[in-house]
């Protein structure tokens, strides 16, 4: 049995998410599907960041009393990406909320969710 490296698998998955998302944003006409594609891109970026901080067999990066500092430094996972991803998820969620709200408004205005109809060549 081939045991794949978890980190490598996550990185591949992140790349796949970004590419699927880009594909959706560009080629799919429906606005809601475009927005789902955007969520894919964001999640791909987040997964990429979180995979960077992965350490096989690492411990949670919280320094508890009684821990040996050198052992902790050598064995804890890298905490920075986790903090970043938390922030990035919040940003992604707020962007998504604004986009979905706009999609609602535009659906009421145009009666359609087709990007070509709503945001096509108007001039």
């Amino acid at each position: 049995m081939v045991v794949m490296d978890v980190q490598l698998a996550s990185l591949f998955c992140a790349g796949a998410l970004v590419i699927i998302g880009l594909f959706a944003v560009i080629f799919i006409d429906n606005i809601i599907k475009k927005i789902i594609g955007i969520a894919f891109i964001e999640e791909g970026a987040n997964l990429f960041l979180i995979a960077l901080g992965y350490k096989a067999g690492g411990v949670v990066p919280i320094f508890m009393p009684g821990m040996n500092a050198s052992w902790f430094a050598a064995n804890s996972a890298y905490p920075l990406p986790q903090a970043l991803v938390l922030t990035s998820i919040v940003i992604g969620a707020s962007t998504l909320a604004v986009m979905l709200a706009l999609a609602m408004v535009l659906y009421r205005k145009h009666g359609s969710l087709s990007a070509r109809e709503i945001m096509g060549d108007e001039e």
């Binding site: 880009l22 944003v25 560009i26 990007a115 070509r116 945001m119 096509g120 060549d121 108007e122 001039e123």
Partner: peptide, 13 residues
């Protein structure tokens, strides 16, 4: 360079 989303995203990609 008009405002259609398709052209914009095409050039961006």
């Amino acid at each position: 360079q008009d405002d259609s989303l398709e052209k914009m995203s095409f050039y961006i990609i």
